[in-house]
Nucleic acid binder design. Structure first.
Lengths: 336, 336
DNA sequence: GCTCGCCCGGAAAACGATTGCAACCGGGCA
DNA sequence: TGCCCGGTTGCAATCGTTTTCCGGGCGAGC
């Protein structure tokens, strides 16, 4: 039978209330009394029951995290940022994989609310009406990380995907390319799929380069799909001279497709990836990539959430983190 | 104010006890009554409070997971295995990063026990006396994943690291190599550092090849350390003709070191990695590697834990999963 | 027609904390 | 000497469930 606050109270000759005060660092306790209580706690090996505490105080110091797939390089880095900041603020994380399946996402939200989490951190692709409804069905603050809902009703932390794709495409254009292929994400991913594609299109348009549908493919962010779709590009009668992929894995797949075709990166074809995951440094040639600060996105999102949980004032609930392009050997050195 | 079981009871015209029975699927409820209760639940949008439930039932359906670093490819895959099985058995996961720091590990164990987790899944390198003591200070079942304590007092799920390293080294020997380098893990890692090293030594000894200390380096499992230590090997007057690394990242680093020196893998130097993370398919040449089934280790560990939590009988508390070598292009085709 | 069980469902006691409120205790001040 | 006051402490209600124990009602067997 575990020792309870009552046992400590008896042992120390005080009331439960006093023990509770000592445990919670309430200053209204005489130093001598505090010492007695602390001694009793030590002697008995008392460990406060967080569940009971949660029931009484209506706070669990736990936040729910819904993530598409923790085994993904991208999301695991994000998760690390989340967890670090959570720890810093004394919160624990209940981690759930959703596989982006809506049904599972909704169910997870519900489960987490049942567990009385103090806040919710949500990652996913599309945010539908059902999500919003589920998320607001209880009054726990929610923050979206690396995602946004269509009309920005929920707080979120992302980068400007449109601009990022624009920049990457522009960089390729500045290198003199006219035939620039893009491997984007699934069409149902508003940010990774659509926004990046839009940025690509805009950059082409601004440069007066006509869009060629044959140079656009949709991948699933994984290596395989990059390898495959880039392979298709190379079979065209008029193949691209540069490729921009919406994920690093796909970009690396593209590089290998190029190499397998006996061509050289970057001499024959330049490649730019997206996200700048750790992987980009582990391939030859090392991959030029749009830096999406995953760790920071997670960290900032969690920080934001703590503010909501403490009822602190936040001035801007939609935060855009800066991005930039990290140039490596999969693109040719710039002129300047 | 959220709706409670009491509200539901009033709405349905029954007692709290009956509502509880319905919610928990207790069969002792007349179908008609059940229907009334279910209707009331629906009408009110009742969501059971898991904290209160946990207090009353002394079960939280939550397990604590202590992991060195979730952003590592190796551990995130493991975590995925854990989470999948946990979900399957209706458990949630509280995920904590330890960075292998003992102090933090002990503190995390304590926090998780305070939160009344029903079980603990621990990953780390070395298990010391302090760990054992902390882990047994409450009576929640614990399983080690991808780790073992020195005298196997705790349940654990791993592969046979000694044999795995032996096999890898042997494969290299069978290819005719005499100068085989090893990049192993830190010396304070009993499995990844020591055991693998022991297996390597034994294989050499069995083949009558003298151990050359200059061909042994300790890395930290990361790419960088593979790149660096392999670079050192190549500077030797009598460099190795094969390298076995205790992690895939280090192996890939080694490959790049070799390539950067103008040599060819596998023609000049063969390389074998360890773990078979997803990365091995994303480099050229693709990496031959010892398969450590991370996902399965996590899954099996979690499954084992559920058995302990349900007081089911388990016949073998130390489980060794099978390993094998997956041959790819970083080694030369075998003769047979 | 009566008794014996068996279902069902209710009352109420845990579960282990937090917390508002009241009480107590000296000391300072008038 | 009496009163007020601030700092400490205790009492007891409360949080929202689960679960034990009990009793009422009803069908069946004799």
């Amino acid at each position: 039978m575990p020792v309870t606050i009552y046992d400590v109270a008896r042992e120390a000759g005080v009331s439960m209330a006093t023990v509770s005060r000592v445990v919670n660092g309430n200053p209204n306790v005489k130093p001598l009394t505090r010492k007695k209580v602390l001694a009793a706690i030590e002697r008995l090996g008392y460990r406060p029951n967080a569940v009971a505490r949660g029931l009484a105080s209506k706070k669990t110091t736990t936040v729910g995290v819904i993530i598409p797939d923790i085994s993904s390089l991208f999301f695991s880095e994000l998760a690390r940022g989340i967890e670090d900041i959570a720890t810093m603020y004394k919160y624990n994380i209940i981690l759930c994989n959703s596989d982006q399946r809506m049904e599972k996402e909704l169910q997870l939200i519900n489960t987490l609310l049942e567990k009385q989490v103090d806040g919710l951190l949500f990652m996913g692709a599309e945010i539908k009406e059902d999500h919003l409804q589920a998320l607001t069905s209880a009054s726990v603050p929610t923050v979206l990380a690396a995602t946004r809902d269509a009309d920005n009703t929920l707080p979120s932390v992302t980068i400007d995907h449109f601009q990022a794709a624009y920049d990457a495409t522009k960089a390729l254009i500045d290198h003199g390319h006219k035939r620039i292929a893009m491997i984007t994400g699934p069409i149902n991913d508003p940010l990774g799929g659509l926004m990046r594609y839009e940025g690509y299109k805009k950059a082409l348009a601004d440069a007066g380069i006509p869009l060629d549908e044959k140079l656009v493919a949709h991948g699933n962010y994984f290596y395989e799909s990059g390898l495959r779709t880039a392979g298709e590009f190379l079979k065209l009668s008029d193949p691209p001279t540069a490729i921009f992929a919406a994920s690093d894995e796909m970009a690396i797949g593209a590089i290998h497709a190029v190499q397998d075709a006996g061509l050289n990166v970057p001499a024959d074809i330049e490649v730019i990836g997206h996200d700048n995951i750790r992987l980009v440094e582990m391939v030859r040639p090392r991959l030029t990539s749009v830096v999406q600060p995953m760790y920071d996105i997670g960290a900032v999102a969690m920080r934001l959430l703590t503010k909501y949980m403490n009822n602190e004032h936040v001035e801007e609930h939609v935060v855009l983190l800066p991005h930039r392009i990290e140039y490596r050997e999969s693109t040719r050195p710039r002129e300047n």
